[in-house]
Write a protein that binds this DNA or RNA. Structure first.
Length: 803
DNA sequence: GAGCACTGC
């Protein structure tokens, strides 16, 4: 396979962007020096983005969520979980005159933003990028932090000739021809919801178009779970990877799209691997379902590891097509037939980062909390203000330990020195406490943020000049053989270390103190282990089966999971009857695949439907609670624990966590005056309960659509008592293998495998002895824990295991 | 006696 283009764009050096910034290039054809070929590609109705000197762009120094265009600051700080999704007043078209006035002010804003855009490192490469995707269907792009790739690439491409809706004909199953329109829209996938939404908002502003469903003329929209905002004129759509997979279940040929841009591939979540596999099949196949209209694919990553992706897509081109029709042609014939579009372009765009000096520990460090403490004060004593410190630790425990130590030492500090403000940051921290890290420090105060790897990708805190990196992180790993997840502290990868270091150089030159030796660094893995090698594959496999990938072994995995892991997942799907004996997907499996749940929880939902509408309704409430992390607030202090016990007394159910969750969800749902106050009174997380209600609403809706629930939404009988037996038996249909019995020594042993398992301290059954338990999660940290636990009877378990 | 980080029509 010829490799036609392999270009590395030399770009400006880090801080000298201004000086070496290339001559302003074209953004979409608005400049004088325009590319002749492009002219006719531009629809006239494209919002006008003028050139020329404009008002200086105000880029507010606000917390920025990562994966946002690195140099873009959203107007608002980190949104409270789902900011605008709650009162859903979507898809309301504005009156025409209002829309009109909006357009002119939107255009003004876009005009102002244009100056910022053209200074982005990627801007000078707009023409090359357009040309590459005209020649080839696949482009790989390495864009370092600050290059502007996520916001600019879709704008570079949206007016290309190949990006228009194309009328074509497809052959239907019955052999008849059907006229359809293919393409017209660009999809850009993101690993996280917030990134998808804020990127869409930013690109809409830059293009001078309203966002999503706010106007029928909107050209930019987004789609994430619980919150989709698009219009009939949407041309650029940001969506989460999961959302694209979901769309592909209904439209396997992606007929709405002319291009899919897969962003942040280096994060390698399991969903992105599936997306890439499906896209490779699409670009290297016959495209019959698209009426032969090509699909352009751009794969973007922040790290330079493009070799494996290049090999991955080349392999797709060199194989005989997955589709039967071209099989006889062989790969060579296909190559000459399709010519250029069978090549793959690679681009490398430098980022815009300030230099960060790396300081290694001269000696190996045994206690990184202690070492971090020393380094923090070393920085504080020696380095000038301003300059906040970001410390990467492994988890809540180490964060809190170091928090106490720093506060203790700071008290004995010379009063003449600037003060120190310590701020913890981890996902389980209540939202209000998380927000504190974004507030600027008081005068003469240095902020020290102690964070888990949440600050590595998900949250960006501004003002950081010093990074302290312990070199470790907790990693979840699914152990196929044991059927349990382990959560262990492991060394991070080089690319994670580089990512952490980069956090010090976003606003000024910085320093990164690595609490490990250079030798240790050099011994680290190059990249993070892809999630597909670390997780239970049953959901991924079910998704593939639901899309007609019969032979899992032949699916193009960017990283192929071990055979054992695939077999385990297939067995699991067989156990819950999602697959039949031949390995084909069953009706049950097809139904489960469409639910936004793990296959096991999906199976439980269907089993509950067999036990009647009331049981299904209750099980939906419980599943909704299980779908969000921890609905109960943490109670670390003895005092708080007692308070919680009292506050939650009326929610507690002796049957276990499932019935307790049901009581909580129903009490919350029936609270009509002040849910927030109710949650606070019961030491229940209001944020988590809002998510629970979102999931519940979605599941109820789907069950009504599939006629499992009656179409009128009235809860059957609010005052009725739930049936614990039916509910728990429904759960056993999915979790029969997640059971353990009490043995004479007072411990629990798993029914399958006879392993010791302890009830997690967060469970209401903690320290209780019952005949047998069923649990949702089996996690190894310091020991094996069962989480999400209920008491069950052994004869139920026997029945469930027998099928 | 304890909770890395994401995510789904």
């Amino acid at each position: 396979m010829p490799e036609k283009v392999h270009t590395f764009f030399a770009d400006s050096d880090d801080e000298r962007v201004e000086k070496t910034a290339p001559p302003p290039a074209d953004d979409g054809g608005r400049k004088k020096k325009r590319n002749k070929k492009r002219k006719r590609d531009e629809p006239a109705d494209h919002p006008h983005v003028p050139e020329g000197p404009q008002d200086p762009i105000e880029v507010p120094e606000k917390p920025v969520l990562e994966s946002q265009p690195e140099n873009v600051s959203p107007a608002a700080p980190v949104p409270e979980s789902k900011p605008k999704s709650r009162p859903q007043t979507k898809s309301k078209a504005k009156p025409l005159n209002e829309t009109k006035t909006n357009f002119s002010s939107l255009r003004e804003k876009a005009k102002a933003l244009y100056e910022t855009r053209r200074k982005l490192p990627i801007f000078a490469h707009a023409d090359d990028i357009r040309q590459k995707l005209r020649d080839d269907d696949v482009m790989l792009l390495v864009g370092e932090t600050g290059s502007g790739k996520s916001t600019q690439i879709p704008q570079f491409l949206v007016n290309e000739f190949w990006c228009r809706p194309t009328p074509t004909k497809i052959t239907q199953d019955d052999g008849t021809q059907k006229e359809i329109s293919v393409g017209g829209c660009i999809a850009i996938t993101q690993p996280r919801r917030v990134a998808a939404i804020s990127l869409a908002r930013r690109v809409a502003e830059e293009m001078g178009t309203p966002l999503g469903s706010s106007s029928p003329a909107s050209k930019v929209g987004y789609s994430v779970r619980f919150d989709t905002s698009t219009s009939p004129s949407t041309r650029i759509k940001f969506l989460t990877e999961g959302m694209l997979l979901q769309e592909m279940l209904h439209d396997p040929w992606l007929t709405r799209y002319s291009a899919v841009v897969v962003d942040e591939v280096h994060e390698r979540g399991v969903n992105v691997d599936l997306v890439l596999g499906f896209l490779r099949n699409l670009v290297s196949g016959t495209k019959e379902g698209r009426g032969s209209v090509p699909l352009k694919v751009a794969v973007m990553s922040a790290t330079a590891d493009m070799e494996s992706l290049l090999g991955f897509f080349r392999e797709g081109y060199s194989l005989p097509s997955q589709e039967q029709k071209t099989k006889s042609n062989g790969s060579e014939a296909m190559q000459s037939k399709d010519g250029d579009s069978r090549d793959i372009s690679v681009c490398h765009i430098k980022g815009r980062q300030f230099p960060v000096k790396t300081i290694y520990s001269p000696e190996p460090v045994h206690d990184f909390v202690d070492a971090a403490l020393k380094v923090i004060f070393q920085i504080h004593y020696k380095e000038p203000m301003p300059g906040d410190i970001l410390v990467f630790l492994t988890g809540q425990e180490t964060v809190e330990a170091l928090e106490h130590l720093v506060n203790e030492y700071a008290m004995g500090m010379d009063p003449a020195l600037p003060r120190i403000q310590v701020l913890p940051l981890f996902a389980a921290l209540p939202q209000a406490a998380q927000q504190r890290v974004f507030a600027p420090a008081p005068p003469r105060t240095r902020k020290v943020v102690l964070s888990t790897n949440i600050a590595e990708t998900s949250v960006t805190v501004s003002g950081m000049r010093y990074v302290v990196d312990c070199g470790k992180a907790k990693v979840k790993q699914f152990r196929t053989r044991l059927g349990l997840d382990s959560l262990l502290v492991k060394p991070i990868s080089k690319s994670a270390a580089i990512q952490r270091k980069g956090r010090a150089g976003r606003e000024a030159p910085g320093q990164c103190f690595r609490l490990y030796t250079e030798k240790d660094y050099l011994a680290l893995d190059e990249t993070n282990t892809p999630e597909i090698l670390r997780c239970d594959l049953s959901q991924a496999l079910l998704n593939m089966k639901a899309r007609g990938v019969d032979d899992i072994v032949r699916f193009p995995f960017l990283t192929r999971p071990p055979r054992e892991a695939l077999e385990k997942a297939l067995l699991q799907l067989l156990n819950i009857e999602a697959l039949d004996e031949s390995g084909s997907i069953s009706d049950v499996g097809l139904h489960i695949a469409k639910l936004p749940l793990t296959p096991t929880l999906g199976r439980v939902l269907l089993a509950a439907a067999d036990n009647g509408v009331e049981c299904l309704s209750d099980v939906i409430d419980i599943i909704s609670c299980l779908s969000v992390e921890n609905i109960f607030l943490n109670t670390n202090s003895e005092e708080k624990k007692e308070a919680a016990e009292t506050a939650r007394r009326d929610l507690f159910r002796r049957e276990g966590d499932h019935l307790t969750m049901l009581a909580t969800a129903q009490a919350y749902a029936t609270e009509n005056t002040d849910r927030k106050a109710w949650a606070e009174r019961h030491l229940v997380s209001h944020r988590a309960m809002q998510s629970v209600m979102d999931v519940r609403k979605q599941l109820r809706m789907q069950c009504r659509q599939s006629k499992l629930l009656p179409s009128d939404d009235r809860r059957t009988n609010a005052s009725r008592e739930p049936s614990p037996v039916l509910i728990l038996q429904s759960f056993l249909r999915g979790f029969a293998t997640n059971t353990a019995r009490l043995v004479p020594d007072g411990s629990y042993r798993t029914v399958v495998g006879n392993q010791t398992v302890a009830i997690h301290p967060s469970s209401v059954l903690f320290s209780k002895k019952v005949e047998a338990i069923m649990y949702n999660e089996f996690v190894f940290t310091n020991r094996s824990y069962a989480r999400g636990v209920s008491a069950v009877q052994m004869d139920w378990v026997g029945e469930a295991l027998a099928g």
